[in-house]
Amino acid sequence: MEIGESPPLIVLLIDSDAERARIVEAGLRGAAITKLASSDSGNILSSISELQPDVIIMDCESPDRDTIENLRIVARENPKPIVMFVEDGDGSLAKEAVRAGVSAYIVDGLTSSRIQPVIEVAIERFKMFDGLQRELEKSKEDLEARKTIERAKGILMDKRGISESEAFSSMRKLAMQESITIKQVADKILSVASLLGDNF
């Protein structure tokens, strides 16, 4: 795959080192939309939700690492490849980066010309790794989702006095209207039922 094909990649750069950020931006010029979020201030969660980046590039010493890692655990449906800067003495930190599930790493001696190839590799490796992970998780999650949907359906049938197929089609309709999954609709129904009780 090649960066530069449309649409352009959206890259979120989380780094407080201005010089390094400049090199990355230069390396991606014309090939990607880059947004820089300084590690020192600003909040990464808003940057991610506004930008929906294809790749996140970050400093391994950034205090935002825990935030990013948790997003990858929670947002299992939509994880992002991450490229991490590592200042490296003996090579062990590069191993560390890979072990931490980082798709690629850039050791020091960063030049603009290396940015694009590294990002390409990161995305490719991420796709491979993510594909495997998803297969492992999918069957278990499908089962869990089915259970939630069944419970929500039961609540609707009970509270509204409707049939099973009516309950399901009203959930499906809501999912389409709000462009969310049926599982998410089911979650909402469970929330409403448990918090509003008889006022539901």
Binding site: N43, D66, E69, V74
Partner: peptide, 27 residues
């Protein structure tokens, strides 16, 4: 209190030194 942490609210990770910035910004 009967709130389901994964359903009724949204939980995120924020490094402690930044929690105030996030709260000020309404995130």
């Amino acid at each position: 209190a009967g709130l389901h942490p994964d359903r009724d609210v949204n939980l995120v990770v924020v490094p402690p030194p930044k929690v105030m910035d996030y709260m000020r910004a309404g995130i």
